[in-house]
């Protein structure tokens, strides 16, 4: 159904560290859930368009007028690694 490699690939895409045990459980659970979900893969959907929105609105826009936002102190208030001026992140390599 879904193999270890796929689990690891998807976990990397989702940026989720899974322990080897978690990986194992995840593989079993996802496989089980996908078995149920496979019902929709058997349905005849020829000519049925996709639905993204159930509402039929179009062209919802706002005028190009500035609105006051946050002060820098507010913006940085909740950050775990704030510097004087911004949001700190560790090295990228």
């Amino acid at each position: 159904m879904i193999d270890d490699e796929t689990v690891r690939h998807v976990a990397r895409l989702a940026r989720l560290r899974l322990s080897p045990d978690e990986e194992q459980v995840m593989r079993e659970e996802l496989s089980g859930i996908l078995e149920h979900i496979d019902a929709i893969r058997a349905m005849d959907l020829d000519g049925v368009p996709p639905t993204t929105h159930v509402i039929t609105l179009e062209n919802v826009v706002r005028p190009d007028v500035p609105v006051s936002g946050l002060t820098r102190d507010e913006a940085l208030r909740e950050a775990a690694h704030a510097t004087d001026e911004g949001f700190g992140v560790p090295r990228m390599d």
């Binding site: 609105v67 936002g69 940085l76």
Partner: peptide
């Protein structure tokens, strides 16, 4: 004048993180 999806004013050269919401 403002960003694509919010009303923050665009700026060039202003101090960091002074145009956010």
């Amino acid at each position: 004048r403002t960003k694509m999806f919010c009303g923050c004013e665009l700026s060039f050269g202003d101090p960091p993180n002074t145009h956010t919401c």
